[in-house]
């Protein structure tokens, strides 16, 4: 009964994560993107805690706390400061228009459900149905990176992709070992710093954060 309830909650959280992933694709304003990303982190953190509570795996609480600290507060704050300092345009520039992106996103979700159907039949874990959502989040993150032009939005896409991976880890295997978890968290933090440095470098070199400028870097014929 307890497990059934937990599964229900996880399902709801999975739906919310998927929703935020789509929201990231739709959102045109950069501060809005940050908020949505923070919400996604929050849902992720709660879902890890719920899975940890229902299965009695203690280390998932630590994962949950880490996610809360890093993805809900630290990273959005760092990005906020960056955007503020760099005085980035508040509008997101996209390569493909938003309705088309949405349609591709929906196709990806269906594809993920189709892909994970054999796993759902074989697995006995209570979180098994959320694997498809996790995979879809990964793909939507990648899609976001492909369709956005600004370097900051690319980073948010990358972080959302990482969220998807984390969700896949909790849903498919009840979380990775704690060591791996800590390592990944640290990596993300370091990545954020490196991004920050790179942003300033790109900015000083190209006078813009539009990565279209980097097309000049290819080999001349």
């Amino acid at each position: 009964m307890e497990n059934g309830f937990a599964a229900q909650i996880t399902g709801v959280l999975a739906a919310l994560i998927l929703l935020t992933a789509f929201a990231l694709l739709v959102q045109r304003r950069i501060y809005g993107l940050l908020h949505i990303f923070a919400w996604q982190g929050l849902f992720l953190s709660i879902s890890a805690a719920v899975v940890g509570y229902s299965t009695g795996l203690r280390h998932l609480y630590i994962s949950s706390a880490l996610t809360l600290a890093l993805k809900v507060f630290a990273l959005p704050y760092i990005l906020y400061v960056l955007i503020h300092r760099l005085k980035i345009q508040k509008e997101v520039e996209e390569v493909v228009n938003i309705p088309t992106t949405m349609l591709i996103g929906i196709a990806l979700v269906i594809f993920s459900y189709h892909l994970t159907s054999p796993v759902r039949e074989l697995s006995t874990l209570m979180t098994r149905s959320t694997l498809a959502v996790a995979l879809a989040t990964v793909m939507l993150g990648l899609l976001m990176m492909i369709t956005r032009r600004n370097a900051v939005t690319q980073i948010i896409g990358f972080l959302s992709l990482e969220n998807g991976l984390f969700f896949a880890a909790t849903s498919a295997t009840y979380g990775m070992p704690l060591v791996v978890e800590l390592g990944v968290a640290l990596d993300i933090l370091i990545a954020a710093f490196i991004f920050g440095i790179f942003f300033f470098q790109i900015r000083t070199t190209f006078d813009s954060l539009d990565i279209k400028e980097m097309e000049k870097l290819k080999e001349e014929d």
């Binding site: 990176m145 492909i146 369709t147 032009r149 690319q154 980097m214 097309e215 870097l217 290819k218």
Partner: peptide, 10 residues
């Protein structure tokens, strides 16, 4: 090699 990150990601 196009120099466009989007293409590489694609």
């Amino acid at each position: 090699q196009h120099g466009r990150i989007q293409i590489y990601l694609l």
